[in-house]
Design a binder for these strands. Structure first.
Length: 496
RNA sequence: CGGGGCGUAGCUCAGCCUGGCUAGAGCGCUACGUUCGGGACGUAGAGGUCGCACGUUCAAAUCGUGUCGCCCCGACCA
């Protein structure tokens, strides 16, 4: 048997390793439709976990859910100039509404639409159009709405979870009476994302504003959370946009303030997508497959009955049933522990490896020997695949939450240590060039001005300014390219 | 959309250059038996319009043209 369940390993071929993990963990597979993926039950279950946690956080910050149409009239998208520029190149357009059977037996689109419909790449325009109707008075504000939806961006080079033509996400859209309130909302949601990433995904992130060139089309400011993958590349894991009054002006979203004077609203939008699944894979997984932080694992633990004869099987299964009930009464991260018994009639070793590859945080084996000793054999996904610890059956319900907590915290600190080890602070353009000569170079914290001139140095290196980190005090310096004074360092990295 | 590579069983691939019997292997799958606390072994079996279309030919997985799809490198992006 090979030393690792996944081939190639991360060190051998990182992109291929990623695809093999997706396959081995049974998360998703390519579909008959170009650029689109099928998210399989295990992959979707992870998304449902993310949805559940985020949705709670959105509600807790005063947001409500609604749903807006998939189709956006072409003219809506034209309303904001920068927005058009940003999305025009990647839109799917519906031009007909009927199919007719041709003489050759083929279906032919007919019934041409008067105005083509764009399949939403994002919903600012159609939601804005509704907000223009809904908002009249300062009493109608703020408007805090989120939608869970699919969007389509016609991408040239799809990559499962990271970049597909269609993906699932949530998009929050808010309207406020003042600039301050809208900025506060933008930062609040950035914070919700950062907390979610670190607490639930065990994925350390750097939050901060994007340079002008990396802004969302039509935004005044775009903030992102940036995570480091195990190949040293950055992945934008969430964005929050302060849209100023750009969309309000373009779409006439106005309200009468308390003095009775008409003003344009200040709006925001923010989103995270199924890309987070890719982020989790590339942050934690190893050469044996998926590693899931317990908080987003569809199942915290799997019970694996081991038996040879029918008599043994009866006793072992009975023990599993009662253990499953006992464990389900324990709680972790404020929820009931999620356990399942895998009693499928397949070879034990094979079965164990399936759960290793799928990233189940804890495996609990129960066989005749365990029953005789009154214990279970417990393995953790963050340890070696063959390590086991015998834990008394009666103590498991109490121990399991601790093990999960320990694992959740361990994954975060391991990822944080990895990021620190691959982060450097550089002072000259030459140092930047040398640093990124290494294809696996991680993050570089550098003083750079937010100017197009920077691109001349970074483009050949395939490096971008990810964001300007907000944590920590100002650290004035001079741009390594232009020499202009800069108040804070930026994070430079190659990115997904 | 530009450059390169590849489409043969569920997966990984051989066969193609030099056209010719019934198209192969490993893994996986099904059944039975021996096994079973660490990715088992034996026996038997199922599974392929060789990506698709047109052409050349007595004959095409094999040659030609077109087309679709996938992968890698660029441009674009969450």
């Amino acid at each position: 048997m090979p030393a690792h369940a996944i081939s190639p390993t991360r060190a051998e071929d990182y992109p291929e390793w990623y695809q093999q993990v997706v396959r081995a963990a049974d998360l998703a597979e390519p579909s008959p439709v170009r650029g689109c993926m099928v998210i399989k039950p295990h992959g979707y279950a992870i998304w449902e976990r993310m949805q559940a946690i985020l949705d709670r956080a959105f509600k807790a910050t005063g947001h409500v859910n609604a749903y807006f149409p998939l189709f956006i009239p072409l003219s809506y998208l034209e309303q904001e100039a920068k927005h058009v520029e940003g999305f025009a190149k990647e839109c799917a357009v519906v031009t007909h509404h009927r199919l007719e059977l041709g003489p050759d037996g083929k279906l032919v689109p007919t019934g041409k639409l008067e105005e083509p419909l764009v399949v939403r790449p994002t919903s600012e325009t159609i939601i804005g159009a509704m907000y223009a109707k809904w908002v009249q008075s300062w009493r109608d504000l703020p408007l805090l709405v989120n939608q869970w939806a699919n969007v389509v961006r016609w991408e040239m080079r799809p990559r499962v979870f990271l970049r597909t033509a269609e993906f699932l996400w949530q998009e929050g859209h808010t309207a406020h009476a003042t600039r301050e309130e809208a900025v506060e909302e933008t930062l609040r949601m950035l914070d919700v994302y950062a907390t979610f990433a670190e607490q639930d995904l065990a994925m350390p992130v750097i939050r901060g504003p994007k340079p002008a060139g990396e802004r969302f089309p039509g935004a005044v400011d775009t903030y992102s959370i940036e995570a480091m993958m195990q190949d040293g590349k950055a992945l934008q894991a969430g964005t929050s946009h302060f849209l100023g009054q750009n969309f309000a002006r373009a779409q006439n979203i106005r309200f009468a303030n308390s003095a009775g004077v008409e003003e344009f609203c200040w709006t925001t939008s923010w989103g995270v997508s199924t890309r987070l699944i890719g982020a989790v894979i590339m942050t934690h997984s190893d050469d044996d497959g998926l590693v899931l932080p317990p908080r987003i694992a569809p199942h915290h633990a799997v019970l694996l009955p081991i038996a040879r004869s029918d008599e043994e099987r009866g006793a072992v299964l009975a023990a599993c049933r009662s253990l499953e009930e006992g464990l389900a009464r324990a709680s972790f991260a404020g929820e009931a522990v999620r356990v399942k018994t895998d009693a499928r009639d397949i070879r034990g070793g094979d079965k164990v490896w399936q759960h290793v590859k799928q990233g189940v945080p804890v495996r609990i084996e129960i066989g005749p020997r365990d029953l005789a000793a009154g214990t279970a054999s417990v393995s953790r996904r963050d340890r070696g695949p063959k390590e086991r610890e015998a834990i008394p059956l009666g103590a498991l319900a109490a121990r399991l939450p601790d093990i999960l907590e320990d694992q959740q915290a361990g994954l975060l600190s391991r990822a944080a240590a990895f990021r620190e080890a691959r982060s450097v602070r550089l002072g000259t353009a030459r140092e930047v060039e040398d640093h990124f000569a290494d294809p696996a170079a991680g993050f570089a914290h550098v003083h750079v001005a937010d100017e197009p001139a920077i691109a001349a140095m970074l483009d050949p290196l395939k490096v971008t300014v990810r964001c300007i980190p907000m944590e920590g005090p100002d650290e004035p310096g001079t741009c390594v390219v232009t020499g202009a004074p800069v108040t804070r360092r930026s994070v430079l990295a190659r990115a997904y």
